[in-house]
């Protein structure tokens, strides 16, 4: 018997490895497709990029100038050649040059990436703390507490970040003067933007966590634990909590990607440095290489985050380790 079970164990591990390899291959495939799609979208767009580079329609460039730009950026080549060049450069980490800032896109992104990363990670952690705390404290308590908890989650999840940001800013920065109004590189400057991102997300995660928590608390094994003499807090923390965070974990990969793109709004509200400012400017000025660069970065973050989430899920839910 033991030999059989070790075999099964090895077997399971082997299958997990295979699954992991499969997932990584899938990730690479998705990223390739994403880059192709962005390339195609960007090059099928109406309008002449050379015009944008020379300062837009208002700048009235000469034909010679336009042709020179076409040659310099390779716009005169066929789409296939451009695509091959683009993909080749991409593999080497070269995202091209900004039309407007005339700087390498990778340099721009590298410079602005730090604050955005910090902001999103802090927000994700913060929203988990808020969601789990809220669930443990208010789910399946008396009628009013529970209703307040779930009501607050629904309300908060629907809040647009820009508005929440403004409210927080008006109240805590202007009136109470607890935090700096704009910018602020230190921890104090991070609090309000992070809260702005975290609160609506906490509402989302909180809803799924609470739903699961409530149904887990109805499960027979919770009753089992109580019949052994376990108290309410024990049941909540030791049994129900682990089950109830599982759906939220699946959500976290999506959440991180979504935080990355909503960070754009928050950075605009708080006039924070970061990728958001870069992206908004690039979108409004149609600085396509920068848009492509930031988009690809977010896609990478999203896809990698989801891969990590799958791994975390395997740790959190051992059932998946043996199941197909």
């Amino acid at each position: 018997m033991p030999s059989l079970s070790t075999k099964v164990g090895l077997w399971t591990r082997h299958r997990m490895l295979r699954r992991l390899v499969g997932r990584v291959a899938g990730v690479v495939g998705v990223l390739f497709a994403v880059s192709t799609l962005t390339f195609l979208a960007a090059h099928l767009m109406p309008g002449d990029p050379a015009l944008t580079i020379l300062g837009g329609a208002g700048s009235h460039p000469t034909r010679v100038e336009l042709l020179a730009i076409d040659r310099q950026y390779g716009f005169d080549k066929s789409l296939v050649v451009q695509y091959v060049t683009f993909t080749g450069h991409l593999l080497l980490g070269n995202l091209g040059t900004s039309y407007i800032l005339k700087e390498r896109v990778s340099t721009i992104i590298a410079q602005q990436m730090g604050p955005t990363f910090v902001l999103t990670i802090v927000s994700l952690v913060l929203s988990w703390v808020l969601a789990v705390g809220g669930t443990l404290l208010t789910a399946r308590r008396n009628r009013y507490t529970s209703a307040f908890g779930s009501g607050a989650e629904i309300f908060v999840a629907g809040l647009p970040q820009y508005w929440l940001g403004i409210i927080l800013m008006v109240v805590f920065a202007f009136r109470l003067r607890w935090f700096p109004v704009e910018g602020g590189t230190g921890v104090a400057g991070l609090v309000l933007p992070a809260l702005t991102l975290a609160i609506p997300l906490a509402g989302f995660i909180g809803q799924v966590t609470r739903d699961e928590f409530s149904s887990v608390m109805e499960q027979p094994f919770v009753l089992s634990a109580r019949t052994r003499g376990m108290g309410d807090t024990g049941v909540r923390v030791r049994h129900a909590l682990r089950h109830s965070i599982l759906p939220g974990i699946t959500l976290s990969g999506w959440a991180l990607g979504s935080l990355f793109s909503t960070a754009v709004i928050v950075e605009a509200v708080f006039a924070r440095q970061g990728l958001g400012q870069v992206l908004v400017n690039a979108v409004s000025q149609r600085d396509i290489p920068v848009v492509i660069g930031v988009t690809l970065l977010v896609a990478v973050v999203y896809v990698v985050a989801n891969l990590l989430v799958d791994l975390v899920y395997l740790v959190a839910d051992p059932r998946l380790r043996s199941a197909g």
Partner: peptide, 16 residues
Amino acid sequence: EIGFVLQDALVSLDQL
């Protein structure tokens, strides 16, 4: 003092 056994141990034991 009192032990309690529920039906269907698959759901009466914590799966995780």
